[in-house]
């Protein structure tokens, strides 16, 4: 308990100030230097993510229309998901890179709540895209992992990434009744929201009531359509996630730079005070030495 307290509260503890004044001064100087370096790093990370965010936001606009187009059919068929079905699948969109606020943990928290909600009655398998979500979920849900992807998030996502994930999901030997896609929807620079998007299997689609109103549908068309729609939806989710991640990293790094700035200010003050104290003490020593003669 004490260790935790001291870690979070104490900014800097001068050690043995009276005995080793000079060493303390050096300590503060070193500390000051390292904090300044950290600030430099966070500042440049902010710059980089600002540029990446601008690009992600620009690319998000066409992806949104594309995603809306892919969703339109499922919305107009008014398919319902029965969440009590035994075989479920959850696809999580995260990435390999951290230092971006609560993007990954937020999505994992949502997922954990959902998993714990209907524990026991259903079997839920996880498809995890990105190392960060895998790291968080691995401890508690190791046996639920179906697929996981890494080497994702360094570059802006392209359609081929989505196609790779979709292909792997289609190829894997697991028949799901209910599937959902979890991703962060980008809202503004400082806010994003965890969103759940239902995914449907071909069998589910074929059983839908409204599908009978559609003309000239055979199994082949339905399969091709559904496969392509899956890839499109994943692509859309990737773009939303990438944009939220970059914007969140930008805000996180901005806050980190600001905090480092505050810390530097305080350290600078302590440094100056200590230096002055050292000088004063030396003067006193000299003067009192001279007076003693």
């Amino acid at each position: 308990m004490e260790a935790i307290m001291s870690r979070s509260v104490v900014l800097f503890t001068p050690q043995l100030t009276q005995v080793r004044g000079m060493a303390t001064l050096k300590d503060i100087r070193l500390r000051l230097k390292s904090v300044t370096n950290i600030q430099k790093i966070t500042k440049s990370m902010k710059m980089v993510s600002a540029a990446k965010y601008a690009r992600a936001e620009r690319e998000l606009r066409p992806a949104r229309s594309y995603g809306a187009g892919a969703k339109a059919f499922f919305e107009s068929t008014e398919l319902e998901q029965d969440k009590t079905q035994p075989n479920q699948m959850m696809v999580v969109m995260s990435s390999d890179r951290g230092l971006c606020g609560g993007v990954h943990s937020g999505i994992c928290r949502e997922l954990r709540n959902k998993m714990n909600e209907n524990k026991g009655s259903v079997e839920t398998k996880l498809v995890v895209v990105g190392d960060k979500a895998r790291g968080i979920l691995q401890r508690t849900f190791r046996e639920n992992f179906l697929l996981s992807f890494n080497e994702y998030g360094r570059k802006p996502p392209v359609f081929a990434d989505a196609a790779l994930v979709a292909n792997a999901i289609l190829d894997v030997d697991y028949k799901f009744d209910v599937a959902s896609l979890y991703y962060n929807t980008f809202r503004t620079v400082v806010s994003y929201r965890v969103t759940e998007l239902p995914l449907f299997s071909q069998e589910h689609l074929a059983k839908a009531e409204k599908i009978t109103t559609y003309d000239s549908i055979d199994e082949d068309v339905l399969r091709c359509y559904n496969e392509y729609a899956l890839a499109s939806l994943i692509y859309f989710a990737m773009k939303e996630g990438a944009c939220s991640e970059q914007s969140s990293r930008m805000t996180a790094m901005d806050a980190a730079s600001k905090n480092a700035g505050e810390m530097i200010e305080k350290l600078q003050m302590t440094y100056n005070r200590t230096r002055q104290a050292v000088i004063t003490r030396e003067l006193i020593e000299i003067i009192s030495g001279a007076a003693a003669l």
Partner: peptide
């Protein structure tokens, strides 16, 4: 009518 590709709308 909606006509889009991943890169363009």
């Amino acid at each position: 009518f909606t006509f889009a590709s991943p890169a363009n709308v």
